[in-house]
Computed example of a mutant assay.
Amino acid sequence: QAIYGSVRPLTVYITAPRQSGSPFEIFVCNLPWQVDDSWLEKLFSAHGEVVDARVVYYERRGGTRRSRGFGFVTMATEEQSYYAINSLNKQVLEGRTLRVKVSRESPQQGY
Results as ranks from 00 to 15, higher is better:
S22A: 14
E79W: 07
G69T: 05
P23I: 10
R104L: 08
R65Y: 15
R8H: 11
G48F: 00
Q80L: 03
H47L: 06
T11R: 12
K90Y: 14
V7Q: 10
L43N: 03
Y58R: 13
D37E: 04
R104Q: 11
E79V: 15
V28K: 06
V35E: 02
Y111T: 07
L40W: 02
L40D: 01
P32W: 03
R8M: 08
P23V: 14
F27V: 14
T74L: 01
R60P: 00
P107T: 05
S106H: 11
R96S: 07
T74S: 08
R61G: 00
D36K: 11
P17G: 03
I26L: 13
R8T: 15
R65T: 12
Y111N: 07
R66M: 14
Q1T: 08
F24Q: 04
T97R: 07
E94T: 09
I26Q: 02
P32T: 10
M75L: 12
I14Y: 11
G69K: 03
A46H: 10
E59C: 09
I85T: 11
N30P: 08
S20K: 05
Y57H: 12
I85G: 03
S106T: 10
Q91R: 15
A76P: 01
T15Q: 01
G48Y: 02
V7S: 07
G48P: 03
I85F: 12
R18H: 07
Q108E: 15
I14F: 12
V73M: 02
Q19H: 06
E78N: 12
I3S: 08
L40F: 04
S106M: 05
Q34F: 15
D36W: 00
L10Y: 06
C29M: 09
S103H: 05
A84S: 02
R18D: 04
K101G: 11
E78W: 12
L98W: 05
G95R: 05
S38A: 08
I14H: 09
L40I: 10
L98D: 01
N30F: 06
T64H: 05
Y83Q: 14
R96W: 15
K90A: 06
R66N: 12
P9K: 13
D52Y: 04
F27H: 11
Q80S: 06
D52K: 09
S6T: 14
P17V: 00
P9I: 15
G95S: 09
K101V: 13
S6I: 11
P32K: 09
R99W: 06
S20Q: 03
E41A: 08
V12I: 15
L31M: 08
G110N: 13
G62H: 07
N89A: 03
S20V: 11
I26Y: 10
R54M: 04
R65S: 06
R65D: 02
G71W: 00
W39P: 00
E49Y: 11
K90M: 04
S38I: 13
R68V: 12
V92C: 04
